[in-house]
């Protein structure tokens, strides 16, 4: 069984992002980039399925700049067998990515697509769902447990107030939540082997996909700074402030 794992290059989660002075976006100059943490969980899940003998081949794919090769190499160091980079310098958006992934799915014909529920940069939480819609595959989102058996995948989903288990017929799309697994550290020998694994580069034109952004970013602003708390002198003062300043009583 073949698994496709789409991954995204994002600003490392440890980095404190700064908004550009002209409010057009986030400053990416000299900022450490890494694989989106939810994508790491997706890669880990695919590798675990392979270790269980359920999966035979893991293909990692990324849509983004040439430098996204680094993240694909990381995916291969973690256990992916080969990878595909759809190279573009456009600001890719969920719909564009989903269309490109559909083209890859048509080519590769994987039985399972595992991807992160969202990327920590845009926090869109759309790509998996759009891909499922475009390909007509069933979807199991926010997975906290995945079991593959007899041509079906059972996905336990984290929903408001509890867990829901759905059963999907393969091929299917699964998006990972935080608690699905804890990704491993890439081992040194595997990092060295990753260099020898194949990495194909394609363009949107090769896939016949239009990646033009459909959504325009109007402005990006840093969240307002929280004001420091104060210590009140007496209960009377507290009541007075709650009444007149906070206006909650």
């Amino acid at each position: 069984m073949k698994v496709l794992v789409p991954i995204k290059r994002v600003v490392d989660y440890n980095v404190k992002v700064r908004v550009k002075a002209d409010n057009t976006g986030v400053d990416l100059a000299n900022v450490k980039m890494a694989m989106n943490p939810f994508c790491e969980i997706a890669v880990e899940e695919a590798v675990r399925l392979k270790e269980k003998g359920v999966v035979t081949e893991i293909v990692a794919v990324s849509i983004g700049p040439k430098t996204a090769q680094e993240q694909l190499r990381t995916a291969m160091a973690l256990g992916a067998d080969r990878s595909i980079l759809v190279e573009t310098d456009e600001d890719v958006q969920p719909l564009g990515i989903a269309k490109a992934l559909k083209a890859i799915v048509d080519e590769e014909k994987p039985e399972l697509v595992i991807l992160g529920k969202q990327a920590i940069d845009g926090d869109n939480n759309q790509t998996g769902q759009m891909l499922a819609a475009l390909t007509g595959m069933p979807q199991g989102t926010f997975a906290s447990e995945v079991n593959v058996a007899d041509g079906k995948v059972k996905v336990t989903r984290e929903i408001d107030g509890g867990l829901q288990t759905v059963e999907l017929t393969l091929p299917a799309v699964v998006t990972t939540d935080l608690r699905l697994n804890e990704p491993r550290y890439a081992s040194l020998p595997n990092i060295m082997k990753a260099k020898k694994k194949p990495l194909d580069t394609k363009t949107a034109a090769d896939l016949g996909v239009d990646l033009t952004p459909r959504v325009t970013t109007v402005s990006v602003e840093a969240p307002a700074e929280r004001q420091a708390g104060i210590i009140v002198g007496s209960v009377d003062e507290l009541v007075e402030k709650l009444k007149n300043e906070a206006k909650v009583i």
């Binding site: 680094e70 890439a186 990092i191 260099k195």
Partner: peptide
């Protein structure tokens, strides 16, 4: 090298 950087990323996380 890129490879050394990947090794560092992994070891630093650990």
């Amino acid at each position: 090298t890129d490879e050394q950087q990947m090794i560092r990323d992994s070891v630093q996380a650990f």
